[in-house]
Design a binder for these strands. Structure first.
Lengths: 205, 205
DNA sequence: CCGGAAGCGATACGATCGTATCGGAAAAAG
DNA sequence: CTTTTTCCGATACGATCGTATCGCTTCCGG
C-alpha cells in the first residue's frame, strides 16, 4: 500500500479553519479555497477529506458542538456535585458571553442560521442541543434535591427549566453578538434568572 | 418630465420578495436575479431601486422590523391597558411561535446571522431591538403598577425583565426553528416564565 | 526491486454571483 | 410636431464559487 495519512487529524484541522473563517467573514464567507488556505493545505486535500462542502460544514458544526459540550462537562467535573453553583457555572459556559468565546458564539449562530435551510445540518444541531438539555435537566434536578425542604406552590418542572435556561442563554448570546446588549448586561440578566430559579427550587424540595 | 414611477411601493414589493426567498432558501439563497423574478420586475429595476445588494437587504430588514413592531403595537392597542394580559400578548407576538409567523422568524434569524458580519445591518437590528425593549420596559412597569401592594424581596428591575423576556423569546424562536423544541413546548416555557414574572411583580408594588 | 495504488497540488470547467453598460421606448415640455 | 429626460430590460463583464480531472510523486507489497 502507498502513502498513509491521518485523515482524522486533518479533518479536525480543517474544521478549525472553517470556524476561524465563519467567525471572521460570516457564514457566507466560508469558501473551500479560503478554508484550504487557512488550514495550510491544498484545495485538493480538502476535497479528499470531504466529499462536498456540506459534508465539511457538517463535520465542523459537530466539532464545535462537541467542544462546547465538553467544556460544560469539564466545568461540571471541577464543581462540587449537586450544588447550585454547578448550575450557574454550566450556564456561564453555555452563554458564551466572555470575550474569548465570542468567536465560538458567532460560529454557532452562523450554523444555526444555515440550519434553517439544510435539514442535515439541523439534525446535527438538534443532537447537540439534546445533549445539552439532558445535561441541564440533570443539573436542575440535582440542585433541587440539595435545596432545603420548602412548602411553596407548584414545583418547577426540571425539563421546562432546562429549556428556559438554554433558550435564555442562546437569546442573550445573540443579543450580545449583535450589540443590543453588552456582555455585562447579559450576564446580569442571566444571573438574576438563575437566582430566581434557585429561589423557586428552594421553595419546593 | 418623463415617465414617473412610485419607487417607494416598488421598494416594498421587492422587500417582500427578499423575505419570501430568505424564508425558502436561507440567507445565502437571496440573489438579486431571484429577487427580481419573485417581485416580477426586471433585474435592472431592482438595481435602480437599490444601489447595491447590501442596501436592498438593509431596506428589507428594516421593513420586517417595522412590521413586527407594528404588530406588537396593534396587539397592545386592542388589549386592556396596564394589564398583565397585555404583557403576555406582546410576548406572544414577539416569540413568533405560531406557524403563520414561522416565515418571519426564519427571515429574522437569517438577518441576525448576517448582521454578525455587516456592521450597518447590525445597526438596523439594534434599532429594532431598542424599540422593542423600550416597549417592553413600559409594559413591565405598567403591569407592576397595577399589581396589588406586596412586601416581598428585591423589586424586579423592569429593564432587566424586559431584556430577559426579549432574549428568552428569541431563544425559544430559534429553538423551534431548528426543531429542538416544538411550538407547544416553547409556548409552555414562555407562559411559565411570564407567570413567574407576574408573581414577582405582584410581590413588590 | 519494482509495479501500482494512494495521495498530491495545479489546473480546468461550468454555473452563478453582483454590478456596469447601453440602445430604445415612453412621456412630459417646448 | 420635436426635443429632452427618465425609465426600461437585455446583455456584457469579471470575479468567485463548488467540483471534476489529470499528470506527478511517494512508498508499501510481492
Amino acid at each position: 500500500m502507498p502513502r498513509q495519512v491521518d485523515y482524522e487529524s486533518r479533518r479536525r484541522r480543517i474544521a478549525e479553519a472553517v470556524c476561524l473563517l465563519a467567525d471572521e467573514h460570516g457564514p457566507e464567507g466560508v469558501s473551500m479555497r479560503d478554508v484550504a488556505a487557512r488550514a495550510q493545505v491544498s484545495l485538493g486535500a480538502v476535497q479528499r477529506c470531504f466529499r462536498s462542502k456540506e459534508e465539511m460544514l457538517l463535520f465542523a458544526v459537530d466539532h464545535v458542538g462537541e467542544r462546547i459540550t465538553e467544556r460544560v462537562r469539564a466545568r461540571l467535573a471541577s464543581s462540587p456535585a449537586r450544588s447550585a453553583a454547578a448550575l450557574g457555572h454550566a450556564a456561564d459556559e453555555i452563554a458564551l458571553l466572555r470575550e474569548e468565546h465570542r468567536a465560538e458564539a458567532r460560529i454557532w449562530l452562523a450554523f444555526v442560521a444555515q440550519a434553517a435551510v439544510s435539514e442535515s445540518l439541523a439534525g446535527s444541531l438538534r443532537t447537540s442541543y439534546a445533549a445539552l438539555q439532558d445535561l441541564f435537566v440533570r443539573l436542575v434536578t440535582e440542585a433541587a434535591g440539595s435545596g432545603s425542604p420548602g412548602e411553596g406552590a407548584a414545583p418547577p418542572d426540571p425539563r421546562r427549566e432546562a429549556r428556559a435556561l438554554l433558550a435564555l442563554a442562546d437569546g442573550l448570546t445573540t443579543h450580545v453578538l449583535m450589540g443590543h446588549l453588552t456582555a455585562e448586561e447579559a450576564e446580569d440578566v442571566l444571573r438574576t434568572h438563575l437566582a430566581g430559579l434557585q429561589e423557586r427550587l428552594r421553595a419546593t424540595p
